[in-house]
Simulated assay, not measured.
Amino acid sequence: MRFLLTALLFLPLLLADQNPGWKKPFPAHRIAGNIYYVGTEDLACFLITNPEGHILINTGLADSTPLLRQSIEKLGFQLKDVKILLNMQAHFDHVAAMEEVRKLTGAKVYATEADAPIMEDGGHSDPAFGPEAYFTPIHVDRRIKDGEVIKLGATALTVITTPGHSRGSVTYTMTVDDNGRKRAVAFANMGTVVMPLLGNPKYPNIAADLEQSFAKQQRMKPEIWVAAHASQYDMEKKVKAGSFVDPQGYKAAIDQYEKSFHQQLAQAKAKAGSSH
């Protein structure tokens, strides 16, 4: 019962009607090279373009397809040319439109081994949420593993599994040509804690997963980085500045999220100890 009550406390914080930035349109823009932003004010969706077809990372809420199409077309591209669909975490606010986009485009959906089942059952097996967060089940064409490289045209994305926020949360890295300079890019899924870290029967190894994920992200040295939520990487500030180059900001963000995780873990252990 304690687990259920704790999990439910997180849900209102994440539902769309509590987060106007999840639905509010934001101007599509280039991040660097062939990487573009096509999401809302806070729900990040990324388009990686190639003459051979495009990769779309995240699709947002269930009603976001028209906004996605509009953003992509404003950049001079077409939604129908998306060939690969990826996600960063199998939560409704990032994948609820994915099945509709898959059917419209014929794109192949790739997902991590741990997130694929949640996507395929429409969120029913998501350990974090309940019926309020269900979505249209998604047909997953390929299950991707840590270290795998996804290629389309000149783009090569390396898969780095960073579980903890969801069971199969994933970070992607690539190199982009930024005005003649090669830069390392990370689509980094941040390790925010949305589930109990101890005594969690639906995700017993969540704390260990987060520890390993932060260790991986600490080893990464991207010059340009983005995240699943625009607010997590100060998108609006960087758009105004005209540059997304921010290696120090990446390190500071990972440090901050890791520190928060350890604080929450310590609190959970202290509470568990006092209850005995």
Rank of each mutant, 00 (worst) to 15 (best):
D42F: 02
G168N: 10
P204C: 11
T40G: 03
D115R: 06
T192R: 13
D81W: 05
I206R: 15
Q263F: 12
Q256C: 07
L198I: 14
G249N: 03
M195G: 11
S275C: 11
G242D: 05
K271Y: 08
G106M: 09
G199W: 13
T161N: 12
L79F: 03
G180S: 09
S125N: 10
I206M: 15
R167I: 10
M98T: 04
K271F: 09
K259S: 14
P247R: 00
N19E: 11
H139P: 07
T171Y: 04
I55Q: 01
D141Y: 11
I118W: 09
Y36W: 11
P222H: 04
V185T: 05
E73I: 04
G180C: 11
R183G: 00
G122W: 13
A90C: 12
N179T: 06
N205F: 09
P204W: 12
F129E: 12
R69Y: 02
Q218M: 13
F10W: 13
A116S: 15
L43S: 08
H54Q: 06
F46C: 04
M235T: 03
L61S: 12
S231F: 01
S260F: 14
T171M: 03
V193S: 08
I138A: 07
G191A: 12
P137V: 11
L157I: 05
V101A: 00
L265I: 10
